[in-house]
Design a binder for these strands. Structure first.
Length: 864
RNA sequence: GCUCGGGUGGUGGAAUGGUAUACACGAAGGACUUAAAAUCCUUUGCCCGCAAGGGCUUGCGAGUUCGAGUCUCGCCCCGAGCACCA
């Protein structure tokens, strides 16, 4: 007998599938469409690794299954090819990223084909292809025109190693998501996408995603972080202003928080100087014994004329200069300083002190809080440290003559005490009553920050905007002189090199704005992009007036191209639009999106945002892009630690392919454990799967054309396998699919089978081990077409059940015997059989039988 | 600290409230072989027992139920995410 030689047969069938275009998806076919998506890879120099294998195999098995079920399946692939590694490689080796990227793509493509992936290569996209990023730029301009892309200067996260700004989502534990370097805060001019405008829609949309894992929805909801409360104003008493500001007190700077959104308003107008705070507990207002403002807000006060004590100024500066990581590390020990200012609690008119402390965040709410130490853990700690009054205003029980002395804050609900006319009121009810009483306004706050969208790096999509001084002047003249009807509604201006410039979007017909060829890719580190040094690219005719303009030199983050790639797959070669509405209508939404947890609050949130925006622009047919999401756990190294080069525990999938073949690799990966679990790779266990495939080969090798008509109980075994495997694939429980296949072989090995049963078994194997199944189907069973276009077997309900089965006999819930009975036996007869059992008699002898429970075709329980 | 997941043999893991430990790895013994590898057969949760057989067992403790790995409550441990968000 010829031995199973995976290397030989796998190459053969991969070529066969390619020439037959077996996996090309047709638009508008009459079949039930299924769009299966995996997160497209970054083509790195290292090639693809285990982290790619897991979702891709899962998606492949599912796609192959659905095709056999008769669906029109699109399982596309592309390349998320912009990004730092290619650029860093270019800096080191003086190779243009375009070239190294192409090399890596070719290599990765070979790998994927070697794994037997049934991707539709005719729809391949590449984010660095100008025909692709033309549309990334075009979508950016739609954001711009809608007022959702804006420029602002603010304190942003800055990675000192990658020398670029980062979005909030890219900071993991105070470190850069890419390189792990501690992130710094830097004051920079940046482009933002106003994702906060979609906070509510992003949150609401989650409720419609029934087929998403709860954990993913929860994580996104937490990240958006909605809180409902009230803003309340406190009057300040004795704010010292510098002499030159004394006469014209107007402390209302264009206050924008560190990421550009409007935040704190320190209104010091006329006689009444006011601090506004946000609280979710207005019911505790009578217990507010001091105010705390964030260093960020304090700094703004300083900048607008507040004359604070030297110690206060020193504290503010010290805190603001501290790195994010250090600030976080010191979080346990509260710091702060008395500002010298006092304020009036609007509920009881008591004078309270105002403090500056960095446990209050500048970028959230108003940047200032009312501190209620009795009912907030953090305020309590601060009050204890600085010996500030702690006044209890909520008691868990009422009426209670005395509230207990607190050794920590009571944050629960209860009844009001010491709160004037509100005494005795339930705290829940008091919330809005007190807020109203002091003229507070309802307010909703989100943790979500606007998305810092510009990067100071070379290898990304140029932001397609031009700055024009001339246009800014023209626009002013138009405005002041003639009231021209055609006034540009969207014309906004910015300051460049100290001069006001109009922001002019590059017209659609001039897109894409291509990345220029360049000598030096090094980031400048100053916050300027390396593109800024290329004079003849930067200097450009203004598309509006034809005068001298300058290009925006920042590029987009890697998340830009990946925020809409799944749309392009629907219509990858469209020259006129990012995708035509008809194929979009046919394919969307993505039916199942396989991917990793690490993207939950990055790509998965960003692309939902883009999609919701495009929906509002009537450019996509539905508000949510992904109908179902399936997340996988990471595969650890054999030592149970995360795979990493420095640890030396990296298992390269290629080694497994070379030794055992792709089918073994695929099946072992699935067999490891539940798809969503984190599991260590165990090289010595692979032989189990390899042995199975070898036995499969031998089993089919015994096949003879002289097939027997009678195959005994094999029909029941096969039918049950069809049912179990189908259900497990539908539920993405791939590990039990593999054990079902193994069980099937174990049970059926010694039967003589009909040819149709061999065929059936082969089809069940096809999604998992596509090469071996094809070999058996065509070469052994002698079929002329591919096994992968055969209809998936259906099971026969009648054949699932055997005529005789084992009924469990219990006494007091403990199994004492197993008795063979005919199917459908009734209570009376089953009872007789059980009571006649010697084993049962032993337990029931001399005891009174209280009752007998009967579960048809399952068990009998005798209670004594 | 808060929010989610989890804790089942030597290991990875299986089990619509109904025979816990399927499937696989490893281990032990045997067959084939000059030998080894490969392959095949047998055993393999723990304890007592020569055996027949019996008892115990899903992190710990309680509860609901005829019956709990599965449901409820409390505790312990592990993993992930967020992290002073007022």
């Amino acid at each position: 007998m010829i031995k199973y030689n995976p290397q030989k047969i796998e190459k053969k069938w991969q070529k066969y599938w390619e020439t037959k275009s077996l996996y090309t998806a047709k638009d508008f076919s009459g079949k039930d469409k299924k769009y299966i998506l995996i997160e497209f890879p970054y083509p790195s120099g290292e090639g693809l690794h285990m982290g790619h294998l897991r979702p891709y195999v899962a998606g492949d098995v599912y796609s192959r299954y659905l095709r056999m079920k008769g669906c029109e399946v699109m399982y596309p692939i592309g390349w998320d090819a912009f990004g730092l590694p290619a650029e860093n490689y270019a800096i080191k080796n003086k190779v243009h990223p375009k070239i190294s990227t192409q090399k890596n793509i070719d290599n990765a493509k070979k790998q994927l084909q070697g794994w037997g992936m049934s991707f539709d290569w005719s729809r391949e996209v590449n984010t660095t292809d100008p025909d692709y990023y033309k549309w990334t730029q075009w979508i950016f301009l739609q954001f711009y025109k809608a007022g959702l892309a804006y420029e602002a200067t603010g304190l942003i996260n800055w990675c000192p190693k990658d020398k670029t700004g980062l979005a909030n989502e890219e900071v993991i534990n105070g470190c850069c998501e890419r390189c792990g370097t501690p992130v710094e805060k830097k004051e920079l001019r940046q482009w933002y996408l106003k994702i906060t405008a979609y906070a509510e829609k992003l949150l609401e949309g989650l409720k419609t995603l029934d087929k998403w894992p709860e954990s993913v929805k929860l994580q996104q909801a937490n990240w958006i972080g909605k809180s409902e409360g009230a803003t309340i104003q406190f009057t300040i008493n004795n704010l010292q202003l510098t002499s030159d500001r004394q006469s014209n007190v107007n402390l209302r700077p264009e206050l924008r928080s560190r990421e550009g959104q409007p935040s704190s308003r320190a209104q010091v107008e006329g006689i009444s100087n006011v601090v506004e705070v946000f609280t979710t507990r207005p019911d505790t207002l009578f217990g507010a014994t001091f105010l705390v403002i964030s260093p960020e807000l304090a700094k703004k006060w300083l900048d607008t004329g507040w004359q604070a004590g030297l110690d206060v100024v020193a504290y503010i500066n010290e805190r603001l200069n501290k790195g994010e990581q250090l600030r976080q590390a010191e979080a346990k020990d509260k710091t702060g300083v008395f500002s010298g200012i006092s304020a009036i609690n609007p509920a009881n008119q008591e004078e309270i002190s105002v403090w500056v402390a960095d446990y209050v965040l500048g970028g959230y709410g108003t940047g200032a809080i009312m501190a209620v130490p009795a009912h907030d853990e953090r305020d309590f700690e601060f009050a204890q440290k600085f010996k500030l009054p702690i006044k209890m205003v909520i008691c868990p029980n009422y009426p209670e003559p005395k509230c207990p002395v607190l050794d920590n804050a009571y944050e629960g609900e209860g009844y009001l005490v010491d709160s004037g006319k509100f005494d005795g009121m339930p705290s829940e009810e008091a919330k809005w009553k007190i807020a109203e009483f002091v003229g507070g306004k309802k307010s909703v706050q989100y943790k979500l920050r606007d998305w810092v969208f510009s990067r100071q790096r070379y290898w990304g999509e140029p932001i397609p905007l031009v700055f024009c001084k001339n246009c800014a002047v023209n626009s002013k003249n138009q405005k002041s002189n003639l009231k021209i009807k055609e006034e540009e509604p969207n014309l906004r201006t910015t300051i460049r090199d100290g001069e006001e410039c109009a922001i002019v979007p590059v017209p659609e017909e001039d897109l894409p704005v291509k990345l220029p060829e360049i000598e030096k890719y090094e980031p400048t580190g100053t916050g300027e992009s390396p593109l800024a040094t290329i004079e003849d690219w930067v200097n450009v005719k203004c598309p509006k007036c034809g005068g001298a303009g300058k290009r925006e030199t920042n590029t987009m983050p890697q998340w830009a191209g990946s925020s809409w790639y799944y749309l392009r797959y629907c219509d990858p070669n469209n020259k006129k639009e990012f995708a035509d509405s008809e194929p979009l209508k046919y394919w969307l939404p993505v039916d199942v999106y396989f991917g990793g947890m690490e993207h939950t609050t990055l790509h998965l949130l960003y692309s939902r945002f883009w999609h919701l925006f495009l929906y509002d622009q009537k450019l996509v047919p539905a508000p949510e892009p992904y109908f179902a999401r399936v997340q996988h756990g990471i595969i650890l190294g054999p030592d149970g630690e995360k795979m990493s080069k420095s640890r030396g525990n990296v298992v390269n999938p290629q080694e497994v392919v070379d030794r055992f073949g792709a089918d073994t690799l695929r099946m072992y990966e699935l067999f490891l454990g539940p798809h969503e679990a984190t599991i260590a790779w165990k090289t010595e266990s692979i032989v189990g799967v390899s042995r199975f495939l070898n036995r499969m080969w031998d089993f089919f090798g015994k096949y003879q054309v002289a097939d027997s008509e009678y195959q005994g109980g094999a029909d029941i075994i096969l039918n049950r396998a069809i049912k179990n495997i189908s259900e497990d694939i539908e539920n993405h429980r791939f590990n039990t699919c593999i054990s079902e296949l193994m069980k099937l072989l174990n049970r059926i090995e010694n039967y003589e089978l009909r040819i149709t049963s061999y065929e059936l078994f082969c089809k069940l194997l096809a999604p998992f081990a596509p090469h071996l199944a094809e070999e058996l189907w065509q070469e052994v069973l002698g079929n002329k077409d591919s096994v992968h276009v055969q209809p998936w077997p259906e099971y026969d309900e009648k054949l699932l059940k055997e005529d005789e089965l084992d009924i469990v006999a219990q006494v007091n819930g403990k199994v004492r015997d197993v008795i063979r009975m005919t199917r459908g036996i009734n209570h009376e007869e089953a009872k007789k059989l059980v009571l006649a059992s010697e084993k049962i008699k032993k337990y029931t002898e001399g005891k009174a039988i209280k009752k007998i429970l009967f579960v048809p075709d399952k068990l009998i329980n005798i209670v004594i």
